[in-house]
Amino acid sequence: MVKVVLMREKQTLEVDYEGTIIDLLPLVGYSLETAVVLKNGSPVEEEETVGEADEVRVIPVVSGG
């Protein structure tokens, strides 16, 4: 299980997933252009893979107005 923390929605999801961050993002309603991702607390390239016991924080790109 990957723990996905959606920062704006203030939601934590447990996602059964093993693969790249790029392909994970659409599963939680985001894309490469609309999210900045922290893997276990640090920014990483989205080509990196995540899997069991990883935590992914999703920070929305669009905010303000």
Binding site: M7, R8, V36, L38, P43, I59, P60, V62, S63, G64, G65
Partner: peptide, 14 residues
């Protein structure tokens, strides 16, 4: 995020 600048993630409701 890298510079440790804290900001509001919210979007304007309008």
């Amino acid at each position: 995020v890298i510079s440790g600048i804290e900001f509001d993630f919210e979007e304007c409701p309008y």
